[in-house]
Design a protein around this nucleic acid. Structure first.
Lengths: 209, 209
DNA sequence: TCCATTATTGCCCTCGGTGCCAATACGGTG
DNA sequence: CACCGTATTGGCACCGAGGGCAATAATGGA
């Protein structure tokens, strides 16, 4: 990404730190692994690690922010002749697509994220951004504000369904993630179909948060 | 609750600590308020405060655990001739019923919980217990395991809908919380109606977590 | 009064996270 | 090669949340 500009070059990469961190997490568990151990193993200073990641909890998230931007873009590029529900379903599936070769690593990451209490809690903040992307899209499609009740509800429900699918996927090695997502999102169509009748009643924008 | 048993009597109460803490949170914000300040203002030692609450994040939650037990009991006592969706809807409404006199305090609490990042994150853990109660009920009504996909999905979706209603309620002083919950939960009926056909296929229990 | 019981408290420690500042490793210029 | 601007690194001191432990205080009862 970053071109060769002046200044001292970074001594490591996010990818490398992640790899080392995951090894330690696997060996000793997330909570029993200190930031100092990770830094030492990565050959950098504690202080430096905190410049690569704002918090210990952020380490396992990988390229989430970038993926989020792709999700938003995927939604934007969705043709308007498919229903909102289908567009959301398709984009969420794309968001969660993983290269077959990387599927084991992905399972490892998601298992850690969903089974570690500290990370479960932290995930809420990331999920907030995820929901916002969905809500924005739904709002835009329906001529509403992203802060309106309906788009936000869709964001929340979509997240609930996606997490449900993920949890199942993690517990059942055989199942296919895209398949589970399809099943889960079938339910979303009802929400969007039902509420479509309500759209005309454009309400005042919420206070935001 | 606890009878007059032997031993040194507690020097304060959760209610009192909460009141003091909320005052400080209002004045300076949650993050800018240290546990020590709360302890001092409450006239107890820092160490003692941590025996009343396992963490700073737990202070604003009040009687949540007890309310959860009531939710579970309310569900158990629900007649079986009402649909699962109705039972859930009714019970969630009961769970969120607040005495009219206490509604302002409740708004204050919920606003803090939903607008403070640290608390949003922590909430996920409490919500996990909430979802488990709903999932258990749905599972039991449908002869499934609480770890099966369907009950857990219902738990997640119900939570999503309830939070959506709450958020709206907080931003719009006029709206009625029970009303918003009713609107939100209308969507839940589809989930439960749809999936009912799937029930016969009892699947192997998940691994639990 | 002495005892068993329970709550409070102080002390010390660990860990995550931040502010500050000096040291370091480049690429480019004279 | 010496020098310079720049960006990253890393050390240090500091804060706040939280836990382990042992001493102590306050009660009711024998």
């Amino acid at each position: 990404m970053r071109k060769k500009g002046p200044g001292r070059p970074p001594v490591t990469t996010h990818a490398l730190i992640e790899e080392i961190a995951f090894r330690l997490f696997d060996e000793q568990g997330f909570d029993n692994t200190t930031v100092e151990q990770i830094a030492d193993a990565a050959g950098i200073a504690r202080r430096t690690l905190f410049r690569y990641y704002p918090s210990k909890n952020d380490i396992p998230w990988g390229q989430f922010d970038e993926s989020l931007r792709h999700l938003a873009q995927h939604l934007r590029e969705m043709p308007t002749d498919v229903s909102t529900a289908e567009a959301v379903q398709e984009s969420v599936k794309a968001f969660n697509h993983v290269d077959p070769a990387a599927v084991e690593q992905h399972r490892r990451r998601m298992r850690l994220l969903m089974n570690t209490p500290a990370l479960q809690a932290h995930a809420t903040l990331r999920h907030g951004a995820w929901r916002a992307v969905i809500a924005s899209y739904v709002a835009q499609r329906h001529g509403m504000s992203p802060d309106d009740l309906h788009p936000r509800t869709i964001g929340r429900v979509a997240l609930a369904l996606a997490l449900s699918a993920y949890q199942q996927w993690l517990e059942d090695e055989q199942t296919s993630l895209p398949g589970l997502l399809d099943e889960a999102f079938a339910a979303l169509h009802h929400h969007l179909d039902d509420q479509r009748a309500v759209i005309p009643e454009r309400r005042a924008a919420g206070t935001g948060q």
